[in-house]
Amino acid sequence: MIGRMIWPLVFGIGGVAILVSLGVWQVQRLAWKEAVLAEIEAEIAAPPVALPQAPDAATHGYLPVQATGVFGADYLRVLVSQRGQGAGYRVISPFETGGRSILVDRGIMPTEGQPPAHAGPVTVTGNLHWPQEVDGFTPDPDIARNIWYARDVPALAARLGTEPVLVIARELSVSDAPVTPLPVDTSAIPNDHLNYAITWFSLAALWLGMTLYLLWRIRRRTV
């Protein structure tokens, strides 16, 4: 009987060990990801600084900045959907500041209406960001209707004639209603390691149960 049980036992123990190790690895990855997110959140909330002369995604991603300037008359609308609130448009405007022109994501507004025009200087406080929203399924922008489907910074900048630099506003020195700021945060950064860990540990428990059942069946047939 023992001879017939040895290989199922070895196979079962090996499978459980592998699955448990994968679960432990995902728990370790979860701790790492939470530390990364905490670091990013601290960086987002840090005191703002002046706009760098040559910002780039690798060095200045999420950098809090503050700049005073004038919004251009033109703007682009990026279609978005908020859970529980439905569709709306992110408003992307050109912003002249310090002799240069950049992009400012002013926030979200309803699909009806238009953003207000600001004739005088406005101080924008927000974070530099280069969203990665374009993939093979992203439709081309509807230029005629001024509807974009992703914040493609280089394309938006080319359309509005600005530097490929985007500030996500969290506060303006003037009222921008009906536009509501949508500050940058970490909600779009995936963190599924806990779900993966639960899956591996569940599979380990299932594998163990199947192994014990198989050993029980072998024992019954040999008694």
Rank of each mutant, 00 (worst) to 15 (best):
I92K: 07
A157N: 05
R221V: 03
S173R: 03
V174R: 05
W148M: 03
A31L: 14
G86C: 08
I218H: 04
I13F: 09
I218M: 01
L51T: 00
M1S: 10
H60E: 12
V122C: 00
T180M: 13
N127Q: 13
V122R: 00
N146G: 01
I6G: 08
N195Q: 15
V167W: 00
G14D: 05
V10Y: 11
S173K: 02
W216M: 04
R217N: 02
V184Y: 12
M5G: 09
L103N: 09
D176P: 03
R4S: 13
V179D: 06
E41A: 15
Y196H: 09
A42H: 12
R100T: 03
P94Q: 06
R29M: 05
R151M: 11
L128C: 08
F201Y: 11
V122N: 00
V104E: 10
P181N: 04
T123H: 13
T222P: 02
L172Y: 05
T125W: 01
P64S: 11
D74Q: 15
W207G: 08
E163F: 06
P164R: 01
A119K: 10
G136C: 01
H118D: 04
M210C: 12
P64L: 13
T68I: 04
R29A: 12
G161N: 06
N195L: 12
T222Y: 09
S21C: 11
G84C: 00
L212G: 12
Q26P: 06
G161Q: 04
R219E: 07
L76D: 08
A155L: 13
P164Q: 04
P183H: 13
D152M: 07
E133G: 12
V167I: 15
D105T: 08
Q114D: 14
V104L: 06
D192F: 11
R151N: 02
F71V: 08
A58W: 07
I218P: 01
A188M: 05
R106F: 09
V16N: 02
V80T: 15
P121N: 13
R221D: 15
L128S: 13
